[in-house]
Design a binder for these strands. Sequence first.
DNA 1: CAGTGGTCTAGACCACCTC
DNA 2: AGGTGGTCTAGACCACTGA
Lengths: 238, 238
Amino acid sequence: MKKKYLDICQSITEQIRSGRIKPETYLPSENEMVKEYQASRETIRKALNLLAQNGYIQKIRGKGSMVLNTSKFDFPVSGLVSFKELAGKMSEPPQTILNGLSLGEAGGFIKKELQLEEGDLVWDVLRTRKMGGERIILDRDFLAEKHVPHLTGDICRDSIYQYLEKELNLNISFAKKEIIVEEPTDEDRSLLDLDGFQNVVVIRSHVYLNDASLFQFTESRHRPDKFRFTDFARRALH
Amino acid sequence: MKKKYLDICQSITEQIRSGRIKPETYLPSENEMVKEYQASRETIRKALNLLAQNGYIQKIRGKGSMVLNTSKFDFPVSGLVSFKELAGKMSEPPQTILNGLSLGEAGGFIKKELQLEEGDLVWDVLRTRKMGGERIILDRDFLAEKHVPHLTGDICRDSIYQYLEKELNLNISFAKKEIIVEEPTDEDRSLLDLDGFQNVVVIRSHVYLNDASLFQFTESRHRPDKFRFTDFARRALH
DNA sequence: CAGTGGTCTAGACCACCTC
DNA sequence: AGGTGGTCTAGACCACTGA
């Protein structure tokens, strides 16, 4: 199934990212794009709305679609991105250390978080992320065994998300996240280079598949000086 | 200008929030809604897409639109919400203290952040937010005088956003934000009840109007134990 | 198979901006 | 007045689900 509006969106995204279309200038009008892309106006508008949602353009009535400046806006923890995808956009390559991988019956806490039944099994994955020689992030993932029957150390050291989407064809769809600041646990102190920091930033996520079933609960614990979260937000319509 | 898809969206939102439509159940099909709301299917779909973006429903092909559980998901720092709007959803009423309000020529730092010209004026607003008797948040707002010619202490103590949107009819459209953790400044220590915390959480925002012009730069500094950010994120299409 | 949501179209009317 | 984006429509075909 090829989606025309996605093609158009990617085409324009590419032109903006490469600098062929400059910030503060206007895109061709929707009617011009209708001819250029051989698509109906609604299809063009679908593509443009995607760009607007992601902060690439601002549509201004009576004038046109202005390209926004997206530089300095390059660390998309926002959205739903795995560490490997994120790392690909960083200057220096990070490193993943697998500290633990086990499959077992869900305990009380995690059984509740993943809404599991009595006797359901869960994977417990513990990984450290190293950047610039220092252990900066501690990730603990819980994955429901009924959705992910098989998991290996190699997959965890590479990218779990890649495996789930490419191999298992799971459709990761949305997540609810919360960011808070906590005191370091003993585990944080032993597995991270905390350098005397009194706090860690904790991101807790519940991740859902296309059919709205919950399959993953993650806790990502960051050294505060290396933590940065950026977001593009549109004001809700009223 | 009445927008049918917004009416439909609000109608369904209201039914979900009030509990008349329960989580884990399906909405009527799009074709049924076409009759119910006397609208075309594309208009219905526009409304449903808004609901999906905001985490109210999950659309599942071949099955329907499932209502998601939105409880425990109640602190929308995400999106673009002013403190007053946020406070309205909290149990206990918070309090705003105005620590400073001045209009002056833009200095080097803020001139750059707000992309101002030589001689442009900016408002500098400093406010403390008190919750449960403790001073928890320190907000510093810079607003370009060319967009906001007039500002008073009463407006700052109430809600700047309300004034901008209701009185000045400014259309606040989008913001770029960043969240990081810093050491407290002397100002933080004197104006907040830091209780010995070694860090503050800082949210920096650049806020833009409908015509893509930058009009506000804000720094919001939070005591870490009272900070919480929640987010609903959909995975980017590929 | 019928029903669901996903994509696409061609055309209409409106509100806004600019000249 | 002419061009821009914003809303809405009626209809078509497709892909997926479940009985």
